[in-house]
Structures are given as C-alpha cells and as structure tokens.
Amino acid sequence: MNALRKNTKAKVPFSETAIETFIRLCGISSIIFVFGIFFFVFREGAGFLFNGLDLGQFLTSPEWYPTSLSNKRYGTLALILGTFSVTTLAMCLAVPFGLGAAIFVSEFCSPKLREAFKIIIELLAAIPSVVWGFIGLTLMNQMIIKIFNAPIGLTMLNGSIMLALMSVPIIVSIAEDALKAVPDSYREAAEALGATRWQVVYRVLLPAAKNGLLAAVLLGAARSIGETMAVLMATGHSVNIPTGPLSWMRTLTATIAAELGEVARGDEHYQVLFIIGILLFSITFIVNLIADLVIKGIHQDF
C-alpha cells in the first residue's frame, strides 16, 4: 500500500500538486472573503462613524429619520430592540420544536422514518426566505387578525413564526448530530441500570450532549438575527419599540435591505446603513464565536 502510494506520487507530481494547491486556495479563500467583506463594510461606514455620527444617539434614540429634510436623526434603538425581540420570540418557538424533533429523530424513530424525516427537514430549509415573507404578508397576516382580533397581523409574532420555521431545520440537524455523538455505551449503561427510554434521554443524553445542543440553538439564533427578507415582509417594517408580540416593528437587517438600494453612494445615510452593517456583523460574529467555543467543548468531552 505504502509502496503503491509512493509510486504514484513520484509519477504524477503535477496533478497532485495542482489539486493540493486548488484545495488549499479554496480553504484560504473563505478566510479572505470574510475579512474582505468586513474590510469593505468597515471602509464604507468608517468615514461617518468616526467623524460626524453621534454614537450615543445612534445606539439609544428610537428616532430613525434618515431622509428628513429638516432634521436628520439616526437612532437605531427601535431597530436593535426589534431584532433582539423578534429573535428571542422566534427562539422560544423554535427551540422546543427543534430539540424535540432532534430527540425524536435521533432516539425514538425507526431508521426508515428517520430518513424520510431528514429529507423533509432539509426541504424545509430549502424554502427561500422571500416565500416565507410572502406567506407572512398574506396568509399569516389574516390569521393573526382573526385569531387575536388584532388591528393588523404584520407583527413581531408573525415575523417570529416565520423565523422559527426557518431556523428549526438548522437546530434539528445540528442537535441531532450532537445527540448522535454521544457514545452508545452511555445509552447501554443507562439501560442496563434499568432506566426507561425517557430517563435515558432526560438524565443521560441531554446532559452529555448539552454543548452541541446549545451550539444548535445559537446557530439557529444567528440565522434569525441575519434573516432579512422574511422579517422585512412579515413584521410590518415599522420604526416602533415593540411592546408585545402583537406590536409591529422593524429589524436592523430589513432597514438595510429596504433603504440601501435607493441611497446615493457616499451619502451620510449610505454610511449609516453600513454602520448598521458593522453592528450586525459584530452581533453575528459574537453569537457564532460563542457557538464555536461551545462546539469545541464537545470534542473535549469525548
């Protein structure tokens, strides 16, 4: 075996190095892209960020008047609270369903059913966000008006349901992997001690896989924070500090999506949108970093 490998290596050095270089480039490119994007976003926003923007107002004022003729105000408090509240509510809806589905798929269902489930969950992940947004704008809007007797259905609840449906597939697949990573010897040991199936899940698997499950939830949350189109359409896109699930609101991402297309390049408003981009980048970066550190925790455990 060793001799054979040596042999081929000696004979085809070119293709071997070519492939190796190619794969290496692929690997490095993603790092370059991330830093490139961060650099670009930062460069576009930096001018106004360090020279002119009232950072206190930016972070603490709910008044977002970027196109006012008399008094421009760039306060993103309502948008920040919007992003966090819609994400939190979405996670409250998605986490029980996502983790429950993951436990079912990994522990309780037959192999055939498991395959079917996985395909369907992947299908759920493949639905474009604009389709979710459209469902929110039309179907869910009317349902919320009818069920809750609300004045309008384009609300935080509507956006959260859409986000929950979008992040459930991520939570399920990562959480299932985490449960699968728990060695079978744990299950066998628990069963040998006379634990019921539920006790095995509750007392053994969940504690053992807790890092992976937490990572699943955090990645689902990162997906929700970054999501744009669905929340743009479903939450009402209104600069309003949300007071409950039935209030209409706006998120950071939706603001960029709705307004960036129509600002003049280099304008103050344009730069402020990029500063929002920096803010979002930082938030997602922190969430992903926590998720990463937590995943690392799994490997140390086993």
Binding site: Y65, S70, L232, G236, H237, S238, W248
Partner: peptide, 11 residues
C-alpha cells in the same frame, strides 16, 4: 415636518 414613527413602511 416629518412623518410620525410607527407607520408600517412597506416596500
């Protein structure tokens, strides 16, 4: 004068 906040700004 500006518009009041809290309107639903559709796209």
């Amino acid at each position: 004068r500006d518009f009041g906040l809290g309107s639903l700004d559709l796209h």
